[in-house]
């Protein structure tokens, strides 16, 4: 038994130069967590600005139109695409987190679910990005 354990450990050590005992670090679990934090912070700061710009509807139609017009420029159009990409990832990975917490097999399938999140993210962005970029660059 001990021989087999040692054998497994040796193979594991030889295959990667990572320190031992890192089932988590550098793998799906860690990167999904990093992306969740980074996208969350980005969305939060956008939200602060977005509430302020929308509040201009209370000031005057001219003030609101002047500011919202800047959202329709090509650079902001690319920024909106990145923002939606961040939101879609954060939303789908949030569902994955809930499943890990509450579904009895959640932990077992967390890596598979990360790749499902990425797959659904790609599909959603393939639906969103062309349509949005056509609106931004097509007029």
């Amino acid at each position: 038994m001990s021989q087999q354990t040692a054998g497994t450990l040796t193979t594991e050590t030889k295959r990667s130069s990572r320190p031992g005992g890192t089932l988590y670090r550098g793998r799906e679990g860690m990167w999904s967590w990093v992306l969740h934090r980074v996208t969350g912070v980005a969305i939060f700061f956008f939200l602060l600005v977005h509430v302020l710009d929308t509040a201009l509807v209370r000031v005057s139609p001219e003030a609101y139109n002047a500011v919202i017009g800047t959202y329709q420029t090509p650079i902001m159009g690319l920024g909106e695409t990145a923002l939606v990409a961040a939101i879609v990832y954060h939303a789908f990975n949030g569902i994955r987190i809930i499943l890990i917490d509450f579904w009895s097999n959640g932990v077992k399938y967390q890596k598979l679910m990360f790749w499902i999140v990425i797959g659904l993210w790609v599909i959603t962005m393939l639906g969103f990005a062309p349509r949005h970029l056509m609106n931004v660059f097509g007029h």
């Binding site: 509807v57 139609p61 609101y64 949005h132 007029h139």
Partner: peptide, 9 residues
């Protein structure tokens, strides 16, 4: 028209 339609109206 997506983002282009957004104005006060």
């Amino acid at each position: 028209d997506g983002v282009d339609q957004i104005d006060f109206g």
